[in-house]
């Protein structure tokens, strides 16, 4: 299996709204903590180290291009 980088979430707008909703009313620190927990939960769900490495690289790649 390799990292999916094509659209994969049904009703993407609904998901996006749900993602923002869990942050509603939270301070920056609380939201940062929430994001960290979310990353760890998702990473564990994926489990596959090769896919995780691809995901880490894909996310870093964008950051590198921006700076």
């Amino acid at each position: 299996m390799s990292l999916t980088l094509t659209p994969n979430i049904a009703n993407a707008d609904d998901f996006y709204a749900e993602l923002l909703a869990i942050h509603e009313g939270r301070s920056k620190a609380e939201s940062d903590a929430l994001n960290a927990r979310l990353i760890l939960i998702l990473a564990n769900h994926i489990g596959d180290r090769a896919v995780l490495r691809e995901a880490l690289a894909a996310a870093s790649q964008v950051a590198n291009e921006e700076t």
Partner: peptide, 15 residues
């Protein structure tokens, strides 16, 4: 942040 997230999660989830 990640360290604390791991600790918080460990209370609830085995993973």
């Amino acid at each position: 942040g990640f360290r604390d997230a791991v600790l918080d999660l460990s209370e609830h989830y085995e993973f």
